[in-house]
Design a protein around this nucleic acid. Structure first.
Length: 610
RNA sequence: GGUCUCAUAGUUCAACGGAUAGAAUAGAAGUUUCCUAAACUUUAGAUCCAGGUUCGAUUCCUGGUGAGACCA
């Protein structure tokens, strides 16, 4: 899980914890004559119900201190208040040493953060990564599962960018194979020359329609054949429409002009359709790969593998790899008739990509967890073939999206279409906004933009807030909620802060002036906010290491929730002390910036007004 | 049959081996002359079972039960 990734540091905020860790290390050394690397000392945020900001657990060091937990905590605590200028006070509860940070430290930190242009975003580190996601088939439209895939991949790409990487976003489009031929055959037989223009259907929907049509006809033919005395297996093999599709695939492989043209035309429709969907989703790609151009790759490498003794050949001519020593089994690399399997072309494609982008530190595949085994094997093979970069390959595996009715099944028509779902979300956002009467003073286009931001924000946040590797439930009704741990709640918080900034400007409050840090002492709730803001760079780093946008989502929610509490408890403009007003507006502004940045990492926009 | 993943409030999700297992929703009760009530406050409710490892286990190990995926 934790691969070797180096991240640049140096952003304001995280160094408080580092400094304290260093001091604790010194304390252990001087008090108990014990050497520990300061980074290895666990320092965790103090639980809400206790006084303090950081907590150091002393249980593991009792043997060294040769004392009880309370005494040990006191000794370290005393050392810190004396020698560490960040620590103001401490308290000990059992084996937990809770440390309070001095007000001055908070205020200095806050001034540092406001001075930063891009808080949390690391400067370029000269490294690059490639992220693959989406990778659809061209025989049907994108569905809910693709949404999770796309949002996840896109967000991870953003998170890597925030960590200073140059990111190449790619997808490989599965544009060939029997499934495409099925759509083509059905269209040829039953389409009557129907096009996206003539039918008004999106191109991908049109192709999908004929894919379904094929399946219906195929079933009819099977039923007919079974009735005439064939077994089910025989019927499945002999159904004329299936034979036609297989014939078409052979013709395609032989570059038959007529078939090739049809293939190009239909795929062209699908790409036009996909483009609209991607645009609505808000995801982009830097480079597209097409399987029709890569499916022959990898055959060459089989020879090399055989020569190196990584692979072995069976009597029938098929090529295999023995992975039993790794706890896996034997895996087919090339069929006996010399045709490739998925593994073959995936090996070839990976090699091509590293030839094309030699300095790639990582290659991240966003693919569902049903492929866990496949990628495990793929990476192992690449390593055995001697490619150093193989250890930089990572399978960003995610769980299936379930519906309340169970699993999505295309045959049963329970698939949730991506376009329909997004439209529905936007529509609900519109209805809800109008119901609340919140669109006074909005122009038509502004209102539309707001509905899209809210509807898609709700959807993206809903899909990204869950740990990627876990299977999740998507309830269409609940996902459109705007209350609680949702995108719109966070968006609302941002809009609310924007209103405060506008108000402050109207009142001509000079909140951008520097604050006399000696005069202002932040209260508890404000410290929590500053702590959260300062923790942002650390969160981005962790999210990248864990490939998990859900951490960012949780963070944004925490920040918004904390802010709303702050907002409810304290009035900003009724203060007589102008320095305090200035401080709080400035703090609010900083929260808004952080929320905007965090949501941006999820690909979610935040409105100024709603 | 073999391998892998998952199991936490009614529900949907959290919790580097750390404190009284957190949130959100749904339920109950409240808060709008005041910067946006898409908000806030209060309240009730959970670790699949059996062992083991240790100062300490939702987390690690073994066995079982249940759900899912992959491989033949």
């Amino acid at each position: 899980m934790f691969l070797c990734i180096s991240f640049s540091t140096g952003t304001a905020g995280m160094n408080i914890a580092l400094k304290i860790q260093k001091s604790i290390s010194q304390a252990l050394n001087q008090l108990f004559n014990h050497e520990v690397e300061s980074e290895k000392l666990g320092l965790q945020p103090t639980r809400k119900e206790f006084e303090g900001t950081y907590t150091f657990v002393t249980f593991p060091y009792l043997k060294i201190s040769k004392s009880n937990p309370e005494e040990t905590g006191k000794m370290i605590g005393n050392f810190l208040t004396e020698h560490c200028e960040e620590v103001a006070a401490y308290n000990v509860v059992k084996g937990f040493l809770n440390l309070s940070v001095t007000d001055q430290t908070w205020l200095n930190l806050f001034n540092d953060i406001t001075g930063e242009k891009n808080h949390g975003f690391a400067p370029s580190n000269g490294k690059s990564v490639m992220v693959e996601y989406s990778s659809p088939n061209t025989n049907k439209p994108l569905h809910l599962g693709h949404l999770r895939n796309n949002f996840l991949g896109y967000s991870v790409a953003k998170i890597y960018e925030a960590n200073g990487y140059e990111v190449t976003k790619v997808q490989i489009i599965n544009d060939r194979g029997i499934h495409i031929c099925k759509s083509m055959v059905a269209w040829q037989k039953f389409g009557n020359g129907e096009t996206p223009e003539s039918s008004g259907l999106k191109g991908d929907k049109l192709a999908g329609k004929y894919y379904v049509k094929f399946d219906q006809e195929y079933k009819k033919e099977i039923a007919g054949l079974v009735e005439s005395g064939l077994t089910k297996e025989e019927a499945e093999k002999q159904a004329p429409i299936m034979l036609e599709a297989q014939d078409m695939l052979r013709k395609w492989e032989a570059h038959d002009t007529e078939v090739y043209d049809l293939w190009k035309t239909m795929n062209g429709w699908v790409y036009d359709g996909f483009e609209l969907t991607y645009k609505q989703m808000g995801v982009t790609f830097d480079k597209l790969y097409y399987e029709s151009q890569t499916y022959l790759l990898g055959k060459e490498i089989v020879k090399t593998g055989l020569e190196k003794g990584v692979f072995y050949q069976k009597e029938d001519g098929s090529v295999w790899i023995d992975l039993t020593s790794e706890g896996l089994d034997h895996k087919l690399i090339l069929r006996s008739d010399g045709t490739a399997v998925y593994m073959t072309q995936d090996i070839g494609t990976a090699i091509e990509r590293f030839k094309e982008f030699p300095n790639q530190e990582k290659l991240i595949y966003t693919v569902g967890n049903e492929q866990d085994y496949h990628f495990k094997v793929l990476f192992l093979i690449l390593e055995k073939l001697g490619y150093d970069w193989a250890k930089g390959c990572y399978h960003l595996s995610y769980g299936m999206v379930d519906l309340p009715s169970g699993k999505m099944k295309s045959r049963e028509g329970t698939v949730v279409d991506a376009d329909d779902l997004m439209d529905e979300m936007i529509q609900t956002a519109e209805d809800h906004t109008k119901e609340l009467g919140k669109i006074d003073g909005f122009s038509e286009s502004e209102a539309k933009e707001l509905y899209a931001t809210l509807g898609l924000g709700a959807l993206k946040y809903f899909l990204l807030k869950v740990d990627p590797k876990k299977r999740m439930l998507f309830d269409p009704q609940e996902s459109i909620e705007f209350q609680g741990n949702t995108g719109p709640f966070i968006q609302y918080t941002h809009a609310r802060i924007s209103a405060i900034i506008r108000r402050a400007e109207d009142l001509k409050i000079d909140f951008k002036k520097s604050i006399d840090t000696k005069k202002i002492v932040p209260e508890k709730v404000e410290k929590d906010l500053i702590y959260l803001i300062s923790d942002f760079p650390e969160k981005i780093k962790t999210a990248a290491i864990e490939y998990s946008p859900s951490l960012i989502a949780q963070y944004c929610f925490d920040l918004a929730k904390e802010y709303n509490r702050f907002y409810a408890e304290l009035s900003i403009f009724n203060e007589s002390d102008s320095d305090r007003v200035c401080f709080r507006v400035k703090l609010s502004e900083q929260v808004a910036k952080t929320i905007k940045a965090g949501m941006g990492l999820l690909g979610v926009g935040v409105p100024e007004k709603m």
